[in-house]
Design a protein around this nucleic acid. Structure first.
Length: 853
RNA sequence: GCCCGGGUGGUGGAAUGGUAGACACGGCAGAUUCAAAAUCUGCUGCUCUUACGAGCGUGCGAGUUCGAGUCUCGCCCCGGGCACCA
């Protein structure tokens, strides 16, 4: 028998679908719509396995919903601005636009080879001027609405290259190209007021019931709402303007255990002391000689510097605490100043032990004064302890009564007030880079920042730029930034910062509803297509991208671009796990792709040189670590269906998978098996209906159980289980030679339909061979006959003392007494009971029997 | 460091608190073949046992329960995020 020619069949069916315009979405209010969206790719060069996984999943949902009768919108586009294009420009001299659009062309062809049911007519890239024009318009709308402002903030500064570095470009505290120790530098930058919406973004999470709980939790923690006490220390012999030191604490209950105050190196008080104290200035400079990432600050050794200043404890004016500058205090959180209570906070305790500060346990019981050693003590709500005022021995409260009680106590004593604080900071969107959406502002010496007039949008990126030296090409461009002020006509300067690429991806889902609209969105299209019914993407985007999108949707609503119902743009979210691979590094520090590594004498070596390599951890496939596998050769060799089937088999979609080449061959063999089997059944068709054979019922039951199971599995994103059931149906069909041809044909047709979301080309092919005239792509989803899903007799396991000893066969609706009697009558059960009388028999109908002796 | 997730045979994994290992890969044996590939059939958690069967088994240690991979507490290891990677 001939083999299934995937290459030929796949080309043929893709052409058929194209000619049918099968996947073009047309607004049709008479039909229910379904908007399924996978996170759009960054055009890094070629698609990788993570893309295949992501888009295969989305396509299963899209094709399944289409078969269920929904008017499906399933678009694709490109998250096309970003650093790699500029890096390529610096390394290879190619223009970022050319590099990006070339990559898009390559990747578009690769995605098309996958046979995805995408509406390509809606395709756009975020670097298209038509797209970023609308983004600039929205920026100005948001500016007008007070959602945008400027303030000073810190960036990573490379003092040799004289350029701003992304956190990714800071390696071990040094610039990735220059190798120079990175410094923090202050710049005036543009910000979105996302923190004004903190409470709203937090409470709305409750309504996101179709989101994974872990993502909701991560978002809640990220927003980080806390209630605490804000109060001011009086500063002893204060420098002018610093008579008070405001601090925020979530642990006011430990205020009587305070032993020091600490401020950020960037705190105004610290800055005012730098002029007169060279040692202090040196320490502050040392603190700034560190990247801006929170991780780096938290991991760094905790260091402090005694400013020499003292503050008075709010409950006792004679009690003075030293004020330190500490490298772990964030100026962006709270007031940039804290008090330290070593007894009840581990970080404070480590700090106190290091600098010889007192440790006072405010929760000491009568005989455990020495409880705190090297571990801070966290009071338990259930514990009965005496909360004493440590110095005077005066009892203030009994037991830990929570933060609110402590705040109330402090407020009553006139010390500070309870405030709500958020960890969430405003979104800094300024980037000192070329390849991004220009911020449409003109700076005038007399008028200040002035919006670019609407009719002048888009502010286009100039094409004649050079990347021969580091820094922002927009800033050093000969004339681009020199423009007259729109208000007064005087000489003025364009803003040369571009927007964070997260901005581009914060509203693309809305643009897909009408990518050609003259405004950011078209009201009719947004009304019909929004929200995204199912959003699918990597779990690595669980916080930032999704939070920014939620913010931007609200901003779009406030500026009239989205209806109120669309402020939560993603109804359901599925976060897929990542495709991971080992990393390989050569001795001279180059990352190697898996294709550049071969195995020799049981060791992995660099293929080109035979030199030994270092094998790194299994981490997500990323271009920077080069641990990427190109799916194209699998598609070339076996076809798209095999790649899709293989990618969805075995691993649960939400879990990370380590890529392994073994198995693609086996997946291909299985698809060949299905093709042979169905072809054989199709050819054995009989025109007259035969009388039912004894084997028919079993096959029909198997078929309908699999229809039922696969439907539920797809609904629940359990594609691996759906695939397993399709194997089961294939196996049942293989062994069904004694069933009648009509029943076998019914089973084969169901198999084609069920497999179609995963292997659309093969399914069309075998569907046609079964004599079906309507293409599968426009055929409805099969439904299971409920009468075939249940059995009259069931097998029930019987345990003795919790260990399985036997199994009984019994009517599915047998009475408990009958089940118990049958279990006790079983020989193996009797043997296991060893002649003892049952003390108790637990019967869980339809599940299990447990005999306790 | 902080937040989140994961850990089950040789491998990927399955299992509303109820038969641990569905399904697949790999392996072994057999059929077919001059031979091989392909295909088909059977076996395949570990240990002991000719067999029947028994014991042990879901990262580690406790606990709740008639019954725990699943729930609780304490650990270990791995991955993701940490605000300028996308």
């Amino acid at each position: 028998m001939s083999r299934y020619n995937a290459a030929e069949a796949e080309l043929k069916w893709r052409k058929t679908w194209d000619e049918m315009n099968a996947f073009e979405a047309v607004r049709d209010p008479s039909r229910p719509k379904y908007y399924v969206l996978e996170m759009f790719p960054y055009p890094s060069g070629r698609i990788h396995m993570g893309h295949v996984r992501n888009y295969a999943m989305g396509d299963v949902i899209a094709r399944y919903k289409r078969a269920q009768g929904f008017n499906v919108l399933h678009p694709m586009g490109w998250d096309a601005f970003g650093m790699p294009a500029e890096n390529a420009a610096m390394e290879r001299g190619s223009h970022p636009a050319k590099w990006t659009y070339d990559n898009i062309a390559t990747m578009r062809e690769q995605l098309k080879m996958m046979g995805l049911s995408l509406d390509w007519s809606r395709e756009f890239a975020t670097c298209d001027p038509e797209y970023y024009a609308q983004q600039q318009a929205m920026f100005l709308d948001m500016y007008k609405a007070g959602l945008v402002y400027r303030k000073s903030s810190t960036v990573n500064w490379d003092p040799v290259d004289m350029t701003v570095l992304a956190n990714e470009q800071v390696i071990d505290g040094k610039g990735w190209r220059s190798g120079a120790p990175v410094e923090r530098r202050e710049l005036t930058q543009w910000f979105f007021r996302i923190s004004d919406m903190a409470d709203e973004l937090l409470t709305a999470i409750d309504g996101l019931t179709e989101w994974p709980e872990k993502v909701r939790l991560m978002q809640r923690n990220w927003i980080g709402k806390s209630r605490g006490l804000q109060f001011a220390f009086d500063v002893v012999d204060a420098p002018d303007g610093h008579e008070k030191l405001e601090v925020y604490t979530t642990r006011p209950d430990t205020l009587l255990g305070a032993s020091f105050a600490a401020i950020a190196a960037d705190h105004p008080l610290a800055k005012s002391l730098e002029a007169s104290n060279p040692d202090l200035a040196a320490f502050a400079a040392e603190c700034r000689r560190m990247g801006t990432s929170e991780e780096e600050m938290e991991r760094a050794e905790k260091l402090g510097f005694d400013t020499g200043l003292r503050v008075r404890h709010p409950f006792d004016p004679d009690w003075e605490l030293p004020v330190y500058i500490a490298n772990f205090i964030l100026m962006d959180y709270g007031t940039g100043a804290i008090f330290g209570c070593p007894a009840h906070d581990q970080r404070d305790l480590d700090f106190a032990r290091k600098y010889g500060l007192p440790v006072t346990d405010v929760y000491c019981t009568q005989d455990s004064e020495e409880r705190v050693g090297g571990t801070a003590y966290i009071p338990l709500k259930s514990e009965t302890v005496r909360y004493v005022r440590a110095l005077a021995g005066e009892e203030i409260m009994t037991g830990y009564q929570g933060v609110d009680a402590a705040i109330a106590h402090c407020e009553a004593a006139g010390v500070g007030k309870g405030v709500v604080n958020f960890r969430l900071r405003d979104w800094g969107v300024s980037r000192q880079r070329y390849w991004g959406c220009p911020i449409p502002i003109i700076h005038c010496d007399t008028c200040g920042p002035v919006p670019v007039p609407r009719e002048q949008l888009p502010v286009r990126l100039p094409e004649d730029v050079s990347f021969d030296k580091p820094g922002n090409p927009l800033d050093r461009h000969a004339n681009w930034k020199h423009v007259p002020c729109p208000d007064c006509g005087a000489e003025a300067r364009r803003e040369t910062d571009t927007m964070d690429t997260f901005a581009d991806s914060s509203w693309y889902y809305a643009r897909f509803t009408n990518p050609n609209a003259e405004t950011p969105t078209d009201a009719m299209d947004v009304e019909y297509w929004m929200n995204v019914d199912q959003y699918i993407g990597g779990v690595e985007h669980a916080i930032l991208h999704l939070l920014y999108s939620r913010f931007w949707a609200r901003a779009m609503h406030l500026t009239g671009h989205l209806p109120a119902e669309a402020i939560e743009p993603f109804n359901a979210l599925f976060t897929q796990g990542m495709v991971c691979h080992e990393t390989y590094e050569s001795d001279d520090g180059r990352w190697l792709t898996p294709a550049e590594v071969i195995e020799k004498d049981g060791r992995k070596v660099e293929a080109a040189t035979g030199a030994p390599i270092t094998i790194g951890p299994v981490i997500k496939m990323s271009k920077s670590k080069k641990n990427v596998v190109d799916p194209e050769h699998i598609i070339q060799e076996y076809g798209a269906d095999t790649a899709r089937w293989f990618m969805l088999s075995d691993s649960p979609p939400e879990r990370d998978v380590e890529w392994t080449a073994a198995g693609a061959e086996a997946a291909s063999r299985h698809l060949q098996r299905v093709w042979r089997l169905v072809t054989e059944i199709a050819e054995s068709r009989s025109d007259t209906e035969s009388t039912p054979l004894p084997a028919d019922k079993a096959l029909r039951q198997a078929t309908h159980r699999v229809i039922d199971g696969v439907t539920k599995d797809i609904e629940g994103f359990a594609f691996n289980k759906a695939v397993a059931r399709m194997y089961e149906l294939t196996n049942a069909l293989m062994k069904s030679g004694d069933a009648s041809p009509a029943v076998r044909r019914e089973a084969a047709a169901a198999l084609a339909q069920l497999m179609a979301p995963v292997t659309p080309h093969l399914s069309e092919e075998i569907w046609a061979r079964l004599g079906m005239e309507t293409p599968l792509v426009s055929s409805p989803w099969p439904t299971a006959d409920p009468t075939l899903l249940v059995d009259d007799l069931i097998r029930l396991p019987v345990q003795v003392n919790g260990k399985r000893r036997s199994e009984i066969e019994i009517a599915k609706d047998a009475a408990k007494e009958d089940i118990e009697a049958a279990a006790l009558a079983d020989a193996a059960v009797a043997r296991a009971m060893g002649g003892a009388a049952p003390r108790k028999v637990i019967v869980v109908p339809g599940r299990i029997v447990n005999v306790v002796v």
